[in-house]
Design a protein around this nucleic acid. Structure first.
Ligand SMILES: [Zn+2]
Ligand SMILES: [Zn+2]
Ligand SMILES: [Zn+2]
Ligand SMILES: [Zn+2]
Lengths: 411, 411
DNA sequence: CAAGGAGGTCACAAGGTCAT
DNA sequence: ATGACCTTGTGACCTCCTTG
């Protein structure tokens, strides 16, 4: 018998200034077709709002952060005690980066430039790697050849394979670097031309297909910014290095989200207990959650409200409220407020904070959640806030990022 | 013999709602009367369109931006950041303002906050890697490392980049300092010699060309007075400091007022090569470009279409399409579309995106273009979109902005 | 003291070479 | 023509020392 447990905590707050309404809306869980059970919570009030995403972002941020970082529980040893002061460190209202960074500094791997970058070295440390004394049996009298360094690089921008460094301005693999060098001579100096193998310059450069079409390969090189003048030699800047590392990390993270499938063995009894527990907390937090997606449920209601609003807008044009600039001008000139946006924002802010708090509390009640590292916890909790002219009711979170109408903020 | 190479990339997409047609139209290159050759591309379909400039703007924008920004922006640390992660940092999908801002930052007074912004401070200090020895007393509240100082220094006398101080008697950048140090050893101690890459010791050391010819670089070092004997160590005198500052100020002033007209020396052969290359890419991208301006060419056709349209309008009055409000009312009332504007817009949008992409690809193929900084590249690429009641056929781009009918957008 | 430069260090990339 | 490997120059950053 095999069970797949998939836990997703998704809370969405949608704010569209063009549509002049703010709306916590429903997203559909991304479930395999043979799912037996699913659990969740929702917080779906409807209301208007003036457009100010940034403040909403911060609200969600700090709420999420506050909730997670004050976690008294868990185990995982060293944990969070150090957090408390890092809040002070930056006066700033803590954004995503600070959260991520802080978390990573707990673990073994952290971005530290200590005269030299040290990343998760699988070395048995504690040893002073000090001066000149012998300590390395495999002493190479040969030059210190460090062939496999820097896999802190994003993959080749041209062909996608493992990059070997920054060549002619772009992270590329060794083959693509060589190819570009030869191409420069050929194309710019000798005025020869590549011709697309397919004729229309649309060849894909997937793995192994690198050498299929020189024309398209060269074009891709140019597209990613390779050029004589873009050559950058010498040691990396700390800044640049950090950027590379974070990019790779982000990529890895994304990869893990989709691919990672670990399975553990559980007894029948454990499963029963888990399900029982889930049912309990489901009841406790949001008994109607599953009904939301059924006919007559909240999803339908939301859709209805949205449709009506759309109609209204098409008939009467854009009903967006007075822009902030006007509002502020008027305010400073007359001391009067043009509308009640201020108080409404406070209301919404409070509600959002509450929503995030609920979400985290709910998640904490899921057996095992608190045992996860903070970064992993964060990874399971998604909040979306931003303007969208496209309805996202009933879509899964991962799909939002694929809409051509790019959301303003995602975290 | 003197050649003037003037490269202009101008792509125009004109949309006039009063005239009810959208038109990529021809602009005449702004050429001196004695021009021998000119090259370019064009994308000149004729079609109708409903008025919606904003969306077109965004299309051009994001296309231009996407094309250009994916280049890692060469050197000069502050070049603009890569997107990939900036999604979170400044999630906005770069709009008109941001681009314009970037452009304007050249001339006006962005100088003020140049380099002052030091957000991320690499903390490399305070780590003692030696275990046993007691740490050093100089672990004070004061920050030991004051990496960049007031850059009230004139640029590197050798290569022109940002200088880091007074090295071997001249204001130079860190790279040139290092280069000279190595050169001293090589030349004076080991009696080795550099050889000019071009053979005649006349290489220019423009931006990014620093490493092209060691011989000329070293020669330049000597020319600007670098020498072992010229070393000056220790704190600045007040006098020297003020001298620097006034020099910098003077330089900035001059820079702002005079249009920079640099001329470089090229050999006959280089010219031939360049021209040959230009002819090749001209052929490849838009073989008929020059014919467009000849009798019977596209310019004439465009003019003809426009004339006919004008006649029609004079006879039958303004033929502007149904306004959006009406269209939407009708749509929401009956569910029917009054015309096919939706699909036409999609078509046009796609075409515009393609046009911009073409333009950038073309430009990238011009020798040297990719070597420019991204802002400078942007500066050479013009796309115009907006309503105009005045025909602009055959006018140069710079004239458009002088029309009293101010174009809506320029970027 | 603290500002400021010389020199050292070594991570990095350009370009060359040569077996495929 | 390709790409693994090598040689060599480069330059970001640091430590140490000199000087006002
Ligand atoms: Zn590659
Ligand atoms: Zn191809
Ligand atoms: Zn220099
Ligand atoms: Zn030379």
């Amino acid at each position: 018998m095999k069970y797949i447990f998939q836990i997703e905590c998704t809370d969405t707050i949608m704010d569209s200034w063009n549509m002049d309404f703010l709306n916590s809306t429903l997203l559909t869980p991304d479930l395999p077709s043979d799912t037996d059970l699913f659990f969740g919570i929702g917080d779906f009030p409807l209301s208007d709002s003036p457009p100010n995403h940034l403040s909403f972002d911060s609200i969600c941020m700090s709420a999420l952060d506050k909730e997670l970082s004050c976690s008294p529980s868990t185990d995982s040893g060293k944990g969070d005690s150090e957090d408390s002061e890092s809040i002070i460190q930056r006066g700033e209202p803590e954004n995503l980066e600070s959260i991520i960074q802080r978390e990573e500094s707990d673990d073994s791997e952290s971005i530290v430039h200590r005269g030299e970058l040290e990343i998760s070295e699988p070395i048995n440390k504690g040893e002073s790697k000090d001066s000149k004394l012998e300590q390395q049996p495999p002493k190479k009298k040969h030059r210190k050849n460090q062939p496999p360094d820097a896999e802190h690089l994003p993959p080749c921008r041209v062909c996608g394979e493992k990059a070997s460094g920054l060549h002619y301005g772009a992270n590329t693999c060794e083959p693509c670097k060589g190819f570009f060098r030869r191409s420069i001579v050929k194309i710019e100096k000798k005025n020869e031309k590549y011709v697309c193998a397919k004729g229309d310059g649309s060849c894909k450069l997937g793995t192994g297909k690198r050498t299929m079409c020189s024309y398209c390969r060269y074009k891709k090189c140019l597209d990613v910014g390779m050029a004589h003048g873009a050559i950058k030699i010498g040691r990396y800047t700390h800044e640049k290095r950090t950027k590379d590392i974070t990019e790779v990390r982000k990529l890895k993270l994304k990869e893990n989200q989709t691919v990672d499938t670990t399975s553990i063995d559980v007894t029948e009894q454990e499963v029963d207990e888990l399900v029982a527990r889930l049912i309990v907390i489901q009841e406790e937090f949001c008994a109607d959650f599953r009904k939301s997606f059924e006919p007559g449920g909240l999803l339908e209601k939301h859709t209805f409200v949205y449709e009506r609003f759309k109609e209204k807008m098409e008939t009467f044009g854009n009903l967006s409220p007075v822009p902030w600039s006007t509002y502020n001008e008027f305010l400073s000139a007359t001391g009067l407020e043009l509308d009640d946006r201020k108080s409404r924002m406070n209301l919404i802010a409070a509600r959002m904070e509450q929503a995030v708090r609920n979400m985290v509390t709910f998640a904490r009640n899921i057996p095992g959640f608190s045992d996860l590292q903070t970064p992993d916890q964060l990874d399971l909790l998604k909040v979306f806030a931003g303007p969208l002219e496209v309805p996202i009711f009933g879509q899964h979170f991962s799909q939002i990022t694929h809409l051509e109408q790019k959301p303003k903020n995602r975290f």
